[in-house]
Write a protein that binds this DNA or RNA. Structure first.
Lengths: 203, 203
DNA sequence: TGTACATCAGTGAACGCGCGTTCACTGATGTAC
DNA sequence: TGTACATCAGTGAACGCGCGTTCACTGATGTAC
């Protein structure tokens, strides 16, 4: 047993539960793991759950937000370490690879449960769209050479295409077409997007 | 009560159960409706279910196949009624519209449960990839002016982008960004794809 | 310093509910004679 | 033609199980005196 009453101890435990939930919801689906198992993975028993969250639904909504934040910050890191065009290519290649496909629990929130959020409540959709807005904003920085509305359009499109390809690649994992999907989408996105065309014109 | 023992009566009932399952699974998720309610929607009681399917899992796999076939034949109809470029635009516009977004039960199988199939068994993934292959084949016909492998790549990419956009639009339904997603993806797909570029070159 | 008490993170038994599955039964029909 | 029987699509009660949720309790710690 660790020391109790330490400053922020309960917040740390809460964050741990959320981290476990984010991972398992992404890997097994939002209904793919129950509270008892979640709490066990967090090193606790199920009874304590309700001193952290008012209901399972509340946890689910918070886990959605946490999971989407994880993707956003990952993209931000890749973004800031490279110039615009290379940064976007780095994001696309890190996204559309077999390692990401086979690691749903540690990967992007969108292919893992965007469709589940589509069946969620109004509050779920508000969380989704505000977190998606942050993702769009990060990607949009890579289209700063375009007019603002065109850059936003390209960013939205790139995110849609990436998450769609990953979802289809996962659904066909183990079949030859799965790698084709990753390859095709990475190829078209990196060779066909305006950011790359712009590069070519400069060269 | 209808007449019993009529030729093919049981097959018709089976098809009706599958049609109901396809619609409700797409609308509410694969776990969003139970056997009792499914059978009630098909005009029966739950006890009879097991004279049609060996288990719920078997029904789910068959419903996946039925749902994907529905999309394929819808695309085929749009494809054959128009020349290549216009046919593809018709498919894209019919896909990326608010009517489709708000009608998951009657819409495409991919945004409805591709992610669920990603968590399915090996047999589920085999069904998925063989049905996806048919979809690719229909879309690929619209890229017949390209080398075969490039046409296939574009077809795979277009399908990924369409289903990704629809999934994100549904998850943000009710927020302004939802319509933006549909518009952005339809716009980029129809103006940026090689089929359209080819058209322009000819003109 | 030592003792009694309050605090509170965490425990685990218990409950109700929904769901997948089983199974003995029903009742309308076609068929044999 | 009429009667007895076989067939079989469909019924609904019952069971077991897992899961979300509740709640009385535990036990380690900090604090008051």
């Amino acid at each position: 047993m660790e020391v109790r009453y330490s400053k922020g101890h309960k917040d740390q435990t809460r964050d741990r539960i959320l981290a476990v939930a984010s991972t398992y919801f992404k890997r097994n689906g939002v209904n793919g793991i129950g509270i008892a198992n979640l709490m066990r993975e967090a090193g606790l028993t199920h009874g304590g759950f309700y001193s952290y969250f008012r209901s399972r639904d509340k946890l689910v909504n918070e886990a959605y937000a946490v999971a989407m934040d994880q993707t956003t910050s990952k993209w931000k890191k890749l973004s800031t370490s490279l110039p615009a065009a290379e940064g976007l290519e780095a994001i696309i290649k890190a996204y559309l690879c077999e390692k990401h496909r086979d690691n749903a629990g540690g990967g992007c929130a969108l292919p893992a449960f965007a469709d589940e959020m589509g069946r969620g409540s109004r509050s779920t959709k508000k969380i989704f769209s505000s977190k998606l807005e942050e993702m769009i904003s990060v990607i949009k920085n890579h289209f700063s050479h375009l007019p603002a509305d065109e850059g936003r359009r390209q960013a939205i499109f790139a995110i849609s295409a990436m998450m769609g390809a990953m979802t289809l690649a996962r659904a066909s994992a183990g079949e030859a077409v799965s790698e084709e999907i990753l390859e095709a989408s990475a190829n078209v996105l990196t060779s066909g997007l305006p950011v790359r065309s712009a590069k070519r014109e400069v060269t």
